[in-house]
Design a protein around this nucleic acid. Sequence first.
DNA 1: ATAATAAATTAGGTTTACCTAAATCATCAT
DNA 2: ATGATGATTTAGGTAAACCTAATTTATTAT
Lengths: 225, 225
Amino acid sequence: MSETLSHNIQDYLKRIFELTRSGGKASTSQLAEVLGISAASVTNMLQKLSKTDPPYVIYQKHHGVELTEAGRQAALKMLRRHRLIEHYLVMKLGYTWDEVHQEAEILEHAMSPLLEKRMDAALGHPEFDPHGDPIPNAELHMPEIVQISLNNLDVGKNGQIVRVPHEDPQVLRYLGKCGLRPGAKITLLSRTPYDKTMRLQVHDVAEEIVIGPTLGDQITLKVEA
Amino acid sequence: MSETLSHNIQDYLKRIFELTRSGGKASTSQLAEVLGISAASVTNMLQKLSKTDPPYVIYQKHHGVELTEAGRQAALKMLRRHRLIEHYLVMKLGYTWDEVHQEAEILEHAMSPLLEKRMDAALGHPEFDPHGDPIPNAELHMPEIVQISLNNLDVGKNGQIVRVPHEDPQVLRYLGKCGLRPGAKITLLSRTPYDKTMRLQVHDVAEEIVIGPTLGDQITLKVEA
DNA sequence: ATAATAAATTAGGTTTACCTAAATCATCAT
DNA sequence: ATGATGATTTAGGTAAACCTAATTTATTAT
């Protein structure tokens, strides 16, 4: 269980994790696509990963692949490291959000348990990275996520858009232009006491946007429990 | 010139640099020893490294190897990264000295130019790491300072302690009590011709101290070039 | 000078992870 | 139900970097 996995294997497991995040299986060609290699190479690796002593994946010819618990643990370990690194680079070394991903992609494979521990401590054991994605904790548990309306989000907290009102195409178009669409991660910057108008920052978008409580009520977010 | 070298090649070049630091060439077996691999593997790699388009080493069968200028630049780049990382881990992440070497050995290969730049800035562009070893600057020039052992310091000259022997805690404690620790500045007052016993003045400390050549050999100083 | 020893090289092989080309399987429209 | 199409797998091969065993070269002691 604690044999060291190669960089490549770590990458495969991480990608399978991402592709199967919302259930189902990952296909050979999907993996080939995200890993930037040929489908034949992927097939070879999947066969190998499904035959290790604790197998890392469950693989059936022509029917895709999913992680075993061992594979999931390994993937979560990489995910934790990746997000900790991203967070660290932004918080401590002045990186901007768009610079961190590539850097973390490489560093995560070079990170020792000690370095992970120290960065985690230096950041105060954060639960979310600067993109708003949750960071698995040291025991590899993801923070619990629940859904609430934007109106109920606490100031300073992050959330990820799940649903936006779709009745009025004009509103929808406006929100889309601001980057406020399902999947977008936001931070609530302030809420005025009197009329509950909210300023919020869409991650990866420079401008802040302002939203009133009528619209805010209709916007659903995933947030930490 | 800016092709990316493999981890392995970077390690070979770094080791050759270290082994030839004080002139001469590195032998196949020395390299096999420090790299922890067989001599046969080293021979193969040396042949390869001496035949690249800009060759990285000058290699003659049975007569050892030394770096070309291209090889030296590559080695210095790794040395800079290694020492910056060590310094960073100690200064910013609470590592102790015995923990940093292994960590840096791995991280140096995963370090981007941007990360190097940011760490360098975060540390205030240091010229020496906490060991007192010089850090090549961004243009890969070593600080114009030479390190010598106390035994080789001319009488009347000044120096700054860089390293003291760390095997014997009793000796260390004694030297520490005299103010003779890394960073301390000293002047060599005299050296007896017969047994090379030295009198020296630690700046900011009233008492002179006396040191024999056995201990003097193990005390490293920075002096002006 | 030469034989013994040590160091270095060559020869041949392994593993990991990739590749291309050819073959096979699955699915979908007719 | 069948054939076309696309996805997947198999077969055979490459490159990097390592290995052991056998051989060759260099050095050292007599």
